[in-house]
Design a protein around this nucleic acid. Structure first.
Length: 856
DNA sequence: ATAGGGTTAG
């Protein structure tokens, strides 16, 4: 328990009986401080009330003085003081009080000091005047004179609510929240009831020290005091609950407020954004617009932050427009929110525009732009900015460094990432946990797991996120053993895994094909008390689908919905892959119907439509694949790749090449996957010249580095053509050792060309080298299959099963699979395929009954 | 009374 909690407990009982003021009619309407208790009127007329004329003269002077001070015209107020002195008008304490109040408005320390000096000079009647003593404490507390404020406060003979409030506020502003709370308690012990000006400060201190209980007690106290309708008190309660992450409580306070102002709305908005509830923040902003609340810079900054997190392009743009319309100037905070938003959504030029218009830039703004450039891949510009920053003596801090490193991770920029790591060491920033996590993540995403491990091992302290980062790093590359080990290790070190840790372990198991272990881990998760979330389910669905357990994937998809989770884009992609895996056009169409009705096709997730195009092609219906492709409003590289490889599966090389041309016209650059599709299309269709031309293009025009699969296609093309010697030459010139698959395709070609000797040699070579390697069986089976020898192919599979060998998830029954898909295509003219299976009542996607294909 | 930039999972 926090020591202050004790302090609070000690005066808590006194609050159980409501203070008497609560019963007075005044308590409902909170009077302004000035009229509630004005020591000025107290003093007025006590000593100077001799004649009526003199009194009215003084009154008129006081009126003018007060007018000037309220307008911040301090110079003229001083002139008036001199005028009074020279004309012999008596200057009472109330004049000095007004002047001090003017200094407080203007936050002007030196003139206030002059007043203080005059007060002291005029002797004890002024110096020891309660009203002036209080005013001086308030003045020093507000105008950056903390030492003087404390000194005067300690010396003050009769403290009151005002001087207490000033001191508590001072402690708050200086960040001494505990002092503020102690002051709050002492004030009550002294018998002063806090007013509606102190309570906000006390709440602010509570949220700074994260004392939820104390804040609640103050809440109850405020209600008893009759501050239930005070906008100030209630707004600070909203802010307080929001700061402590309790948005339900904040909302409760917010809803019952009869009167709200911008600050109230802003507090709600800020609460939502700071608790990661960005969608709710957008809703609040919407309500504000509906209620015609004039937004402030705070409003816009928060909405921009939510928009950036949500990638809400339109909303962010709109709030920028609102800021312009409201005439809000570009101060540092608004400007940095805008730059952050524009960088996050990838509109770097707009961020530059805002940067150029910002009057006064600071470190945050520069840093934001630098990490925006890195994210956008404009490394030159980033370095340029970095050097300009150095000229202005501004440096990266841990916040920017973390975001730069994470941008390096996304763009796989190992070189820059290493420089960032070096920078963090040179500037002792690597102790920062966010920097450490992003360093580990950067090395992992750049494919250097050993360096990621090193960065993790050298970290001074480790939190949940750092553990998760390394677990996920191992999971990504399928090193499930290490991921699982770390999962137990973290618990031994007293760090409780969260759902992200579980999900990463599951992913690792799936990536390494340990489907049963993954399922087992999932059962453990369910009995652990942690709730599986959408990511968990999606990991399972995609994992099953990618490991050839399409049926289980679909079952999990149905189960997920029974548990009340709505499928999102990622889970839909997973289940579509499952349909592809089991080559079920029937299920695939059902999913397609579901997607259409849920409006998921227009979602900004292009993967959904890509997976459909892929599914239709691999389930044998190229027509529907093409149709889905054509209907997609946005066509990016992955979508083209899906259709090209779809054409390849069906040996439709002409179509694949035509699509490639079309891509080129649309200005879309091909990648290695595109060429895999094109080459395999050519090899399936036996287009020798075209295939070789594509291969040359890939290397010389597009500067892409061919992988084993590309070489494999070219080998097949050459071998099928009968050009075995060229094929062998190509294999021997590859920059890496040939795998069994490529030798297998050579083997198949040998058979076709009746090169029995070479064929036998290759077979012997493969089986002698790796007698227990299942891949050889797969290769042989696939070779038979490609040759149309289904029986031999099945027999080879049978032998493999007899030997107790399991097919490695990394390889598949490629050729047989392809033909299976083609087989399915011809068989799927069944009328049932047009039915859409969805339960009208529950909206759950219902799967029609068993539907298996035997090997042909 | 409210205010800007950061790290992990599908």
């Amino acid at each position: 328990m926090h020591p202050l909690q004790h302090h609070f407990r000690s005066w808590l009982p006194s609050l159980s009986t409501p203070p008497s003021t609560a019963l007075s009619p005044h308590a409902r309407t909170i009077p302004a401080r000035k009229s509630s208790h004005s020591p000025a009127t107290h003093v007025l007329g006590l000593h100077y009330g001799s004649t009526g004329a003199a009194q009215s003269l003084r009154k008129s002077f006081l009126h003018r003085m007060s007018f000037l001070c309220k307008d911040g015209l301090l110079g003229e107020a001083f002139s008036l003081l001199y005028e009074m002195e020279s004309e012999g008008v008596p200057v009472g304490p109330e004049f000095y009080g007004e002047l001090l109040q003017g200094c407080i408005y203007e936050r002007a320390l030196p003139p206030g000091r002059q007043i203080h000096a005059r007060v002291v000079k005029r002797g004890d009647f002024f110096h020891k005047n309660d009203y002036l003593e209080t005013k001086l404490v308030v003045f020093y507390a507000k105008c950056d004179g903390p030492a003087a404020a404390s000194r005067l406060f300690v010396r003050q003979r009769r403290r009151n609510v005002f001087s207490w409030a000033a001191m508590i506020g001072l402690h708050c502003r200086e960040g001494f929240s505990e002092d503020a709370l102690v002051g709050f308690c002492d004030m009550m012990c002294d018998g002063f009831l806090p007013d509606n000006f102190v309570i906000p400060n006390a709440l602010k201190a509570c949220s700074a020290v994260r004392l939820l209980g104390c804040g609640r007690e103050i809440h109850g106290f405020a209600l008893k005091m009759g501050f239930g309708c005070c906008v100030f008190v209630q707004s600070s309660l909203v802010d307080f609950y929001g700061k402590l992450g309790s948005m339900e409580a904040a909302r409760k306070v917010f809803i019952q407020m009869p009167e709200k102002n911008v600050v109230t709305w802003n507090s709600m908005l800020v609460g939502y954004t700071q608790n990661g509830l960005d969608a709710e923040a957008m809703k609040i902003f919407h309500d504000m617009r509906v209620e015609n609340v004039e937004p402030t810079r705070v409003t816009i900054a928060s909405v921009l932050s939510a928009s950036a997190n949500l990638q809400a392009l339109h909303e962010g743009r709109q709030s920028h427009a609102v800021a312009v319309l409201c005439g809000l100037e570009l101060d540092n905070i608004l400007s940095s929110s805008l730059i952050n938003f524009y960088c996050k959504v990838g509109w770097t030029e707009d961020a530059e525009l805002v940067f150029g218009r910002t009057l006064e830039t600071d470190m945050v703004i520069w840093n934001l732009l630098v990490s925006g450039y890195v994210r956008d891949g404009q490394i030159d510009k980033a370095f340029h900015m970095y050097h300009k920053m150095r000229e202005e003596n501004l440096r990266f801090d841990s916040v920017t460094l973390a975001s730069i490193l994470s941008a390096c991770a996304d763009t796989e920029n190992l070189k820059l990432g290493k420089e960032g790591h070096g920078y963090s060491i040179r500037n002792s920033l690597q102790t920062d946990l966010a920097v450490a996590s992003s360093t580990v993540d950067m090395y992992a995403k750049c494919g250097r797991i050993e360096l990621a491990r090193l960065a993790f091992d050298t970290a001074v302290n480790r939190d949940l996120i750092l553990w998760n980062t390394l677990i996920s790093a191992y999971a990504q590359c399928g090193l499930s053993g290490e991921a699982t080990r770390l999962f137990y290790h973290m618990q031994l070190e007293g760090v409780t895994p969260d759902i992200i840790s579980w999900n990463s372990v599951l992913l690792g198991l799936m990536r390494s094909g340990q489907v049963d272990e993954a399922y087992d881990m999932f059962s453990q998760l369910q009995s652990s008390g942690e709730q599986p979330n959408l990511v968990t389910w999606t990991t399972l669905i995609s994992g099953f689908a990618q490991n050839g357990h399409g049926q289980e994937a679909i079952e999990v998809f149905v189960l997920m919905q029974e548990r009340g989770l709505r499928p999102n884009a990622a889970s839909i992609v997973g289940v579509t892959m499952a349909c592809t895996d089991i080559a079920s056009l029937l299920y695939g169409k059902a999913i397609h119907g579901y997607i259409m009705r849920q409006g998921l096709l227009s979602s900004p997730q292009p993967q959904v439509v890509t997976s459909l195009v892929d599914m239709y092609a691999k389930c044998g219906n190229v027509y529907l694949s093409r149709k889905t492709f054509d209907l997609s409003p946005r066509k990016e590289l992955p979508l083209y790749n899906a259709l090209i490889s779809g054409y390849a599966v069906h040996g439709l090389a002409e179509e694949a090449l035509a699509l490639f041309m079309h891509m080129h016209e649309q200005g879309i650059k091909p990648d290695a996957i595109t060429f895999t599709g094109l080459l395999s299309a050519c090899s399936h269709a036996g287009l020798v010249d075209e295939g070789l031309e594509v291969f040359t293009k890939m290397v010389s025009e597009h500067n892409l580095c061919p992988c084993m699969e590309h070489y494999g296609c070219v080998t097949t093309i050459l071998a099928r053509q009968g050009n075995i010697e060229e094929a062998i030459k190509l294999i021997s010139e590859m920059p890496f050792k040939p795998d069994t698959k490529i030798l297998g395709s050579l083997l198949a070609a040998c058979k076709e060309n009746h090169l029995i000797e070479l064929s036998k040699y290759l077979s012997r070579y493969l089986f002698e080298r790796e007698p227990e390697n299942q891949v050889n069986y797969v290769t042989l089976s696939n070779t038979y299959a490609a040759d149309g020898k289904w029986n031999e192919a099945s027999k080879t599979r049978g032998t493999m099963k007899e030997k107790g060998l399991q097919k490695d998830p990394g390889c598949s029954w490629i050729h047989l699979g392809t033909d299976l898909h083609t087989f399915v295509a011809t068989d799927m003219s069944h009328p049932q395929t047009d039915l859409i299976y969805e339960d009208q009542e529950t909206g759950l996607l219902a799967m029609p009954g068993g539907h298996d294909f035997d090997d042909p």
